[in-house]
Simulated scan of single mutants.
Amino acid sequence: MQLRPLPAFADNYIWTLAYDDGTALVVDPGEAAPVLEAARGGLKPVAVLLTHHHPDHVGGVEELLQAWPELAVFAPEDTRIRHATKTVREGDAVVVGPWRFRVLEIPGHTLSHVAFHGEGIVFCGDTLFSLGCGRLFEGSPAQMWASLTKLAALPPQTRVCCGHEYTVNNSRFACVVEPGNLALRRRSEEALAMRERGLPTLPSTLADELAANPFLRVDAPEVRQSLRTRLGRDPADSVEAFAELRRWKDGFTS
């Protein structure tokens, strides 16, 4: 299998997972053009997985259905998502040809956000980023923390396929929060070098994120110390620690 991120817009990725014959899953096609271009190189989409309703993740589906009318489109149950051929919920199995994915409901960024876990991969949309996490447009901090905790419980070798190339920007904030984290420093340097060569920093692995992503490390001593300094007191619990970290990131300028 070949796992490939197709760049879209300014910093989106449309993920494809393909076999040698080109048969492929397409994840979060915010625009059709990158997929159509890949198809000219032999990609043969058979199904689309959608993680949430935002236009930069679903906007290309209609045009792809015009090109491939038999495409199966799997999406969370949300009236804002058009063209879904099957809606999915927590625990559902998505089986397409040789692939099998389990659906995880991960609200926070949006209320209906889902992830697809299988084949050693998690397609997590805009919930978990490398060295960061998504903004809370609809959900609560408690919901988002529960979703991140659910993703963190996946096998450490799981490849994390998120929706945006944010790693370098996220690293600047992460290094302020946890400056003594050597794994974070290594990941930051690696990401910067990859972007300078025009390479994607993704996928990462869940092990990488557990070692370096402050949003999965809100209970780590140095992260807690940074939050204690910021708040003037200890956070009451992990949810408050996460909420304050997310507020800090929302206003952060490097």
Rank of each mutant, 00 (worst) to 15 (best):
L43Q: 03
T149E: 15
P107G: 05
L128N: 09
E105A: 13
L202M: 10
D250I: 04
A38K: 04
L227A: 04
P69C: 14
T23Y: 01
H113R: 00
G22P: 07
L136A: 07
A33P: 00
N169L: 15
R159F: 11
E165Y: 10
M194G: 02
I121T: 01
G41F: 07
D237I: 05
E70W: 08
V122T: 05
T167K: 02
H54Y: 12
C162I: 07
C161T: 11
A183F: 14
V176D: 10
G125M: 02
T87H: 14
D250W: 10
D20F: 14
L151P: 09
P107V: 04
A18M: 04
C161Q: 05
P5D: 11
Y19K: 04
D56E: 08
P45A: 14
L25C: 01
R172A: 15
V61G: 10
G139M: 03
D234K: 05
T229Q: 08
A75V: 10
Q143H: 08
V94T: 01
F129L: 08
P69Y: 09
L182M: 14
L154K: 04
D126H: 12
A24C: 05
A174R: 06
Q66C: 11
D126E: 14
H164V: 12
S140C: 08
A220V: 00
A33H: 12
R172E: 15
G22M: 13
S140H: 05
P156N: 08
A32C: 08
L17T: 00
P156A: 14
I81W: 01
L206A: 02
L36Y: 12
D21P: 01
D21C: 08
R246F: 11
S254C: 11
T167Q: 06
A10K: 13
Y13D: 10
A33S: 13
V96M: 00
R82A: 14
A152F: 08
E165P: 02
E31N: 07
A115T: 08
R4V: 12
F173R: 11
V88R: 00
R247T: 13
P203Y: 06
G22K: 13
R187Y: 09
A39R: 07
L136G: 05
V88H: 04
V160F: 11
G41E: 13
A153C: 10
P7A: 08
V48H: 09
L64A: 14
F101L: 06
L136K: 09
Y166G: 03
D78W: 00
R159T: 03
A241I: 01
G125Y: 00
A243M: 11
L3T: 07
W248Q: 02
Q225D: 08
